[in-house]
C-alpha cells in the first residue's frame, strides 16, 4: 500500500485543512487523499463539517489553514477568479435541492453548464440526457419533471463538461426509494466510466455502495470504512 502511495498521484489531497469561524472550528486539521477514479462517501451528523469540506473541495470556499491540492494545484492559495475557472473546468456539482433554473427546459439547463465552460452543444447535451435516461423529457421544464427526473438532469449537467471530479451533496436526500436507486445506479455507471465521485450523504445505504466512507465528527475525520468489494485504495494519510 505504501508503494502505491508513492507511485500513484492523488487527484485530491487535503493537508491539515482547518476552517475557523471565530471560536468555531468547522474543520479541524483534516487530511485526506482521493485518488483519480475513486468513489468516496462522506458521512457525519449535522454540524460535523461535511458541507464546509464540500465547499472547500468545490472551490466555493477557502480554508483558514492547510493545503488543498486538486490535480496538483493548491486551491487554498488561488484567487477567487482562478477558483471559478477551476470549478468550471474540473468540478461537477450535484445538489440535494437540484437547483435547476425554473424557466429553462431540462436540455437548456444542461446546456447552461456548457455555456460557462465552452460552447453550448445541443447534440452533446442531448447525449448527456440520454445517458441519464431522460432524452424524452429534454424539452420539459423542471416543474414538469419528478424529483428523480430533476436530479437526473442535475447529474447530466454535472457530467456534461467531463469534470475531473463530481461532488454530490445529499444527492438522494429529496428522493424516494425508487429514484434513489436510479441515481445510485447512475453513480455506479459514472464510476465504471472512471469518474471520481465524492458523495456527502446521511443515508448509510448510499454510503455503502461507495469504495470507502469517511465519517466526520466535530470538524475532525473520525474514522474511515472501506467497502470490501473494492480493493487497492489509498488510506487516510
Amino acid at each position: 500500500m505504501g508503494k502505491d502511495k508513492v507511485k500513484r498521484m492523488s487527484l485530491l489531497e487535503l493537508r491539515n485543512v482547518s476552517k475557523i469561524y471565530g471560536d468555531l472550528h468547522a474543520l479541524d486539521k483534516v487530511s485526506l487523499q482521493v485518488e483519480k477514479g475513486e468513489w468516496v462517501a462522506i458521512m457525519g451528523p449535522s454540524g460535523s463539517g461535511k458541507s464546509t469540506m464540500m465547499n472547500i473541495i468545490g472551490c466555493m470556499d477557502k480554508p483558514s489553514e492547510g493545503e488543498v491540492l486538486l490535480d496538483g494545484i493548491d486551491i487554498a492559495k488561488e484567487t477567487a477568479k482562478n477558483l471559478t475557472n477551476i470549478r468550471r473546468d474540473k468540478i461537477g456539482l450535484i445538489f440535494q435541492q437540484f437547483h435547476l433554473v425554473s424557466y429553462l427546459t431540462a436540455l437548456e439547463n444542461v446546456m447552461m453548464a456548457q455555456y460557462y465552460h465552452s460552447i453550448p452543444d445541443e447534440k452533446e447535451a442531448m447525449e448527456a440526457l440520454e445517458r441519464v435516461g431522460l432524452a424524452d423529457r429534454a424539452r420539459h421544464l423542471p416543474s414538469q419533471l419528478s424529483g428523480g427526473e430533476q436530479q437526473r438532469v442535475c447529474v447530466a449537467r454535472a457530467l456534461i463538461n467531463y469534470p475531473e471530479i463530481i461532488l454530490a451533496d445529499e444527492p438522494t436526500g429529496n428522493l424516494d426509494e425508487a429514484n434513489e436507486e436510479i441515481v445510485v445506479d447512475l453513480f455506479r455507471r459514472l464510476h465504471e466510466d472512471g469518474t471520481t465521485l465524492i458523495v456527502v450523504t446521511h443515508d448509510p445505504e448510499v454510503a455503502e455502495v461507495a469504495q470507502r466512507t469517511l465519517v466526520l465528527r466535530n470538524g475532525r475525520l473520525d474514522h474511515e470504512t472501506i467497502n470490501p468489494n473494492f480493493t487497492g485504495h489509498i488510506k487516510l494519510s
Partner: peptide
Amino acid sequence: RKEIGLRKALGASDAS
C-alpha cells in the same frame, strides 16, 4: 439569488 449562485457554481465569472 439562487439562480445567480447556481450560475457562479457552474463557473460563471463576475464579468459574465
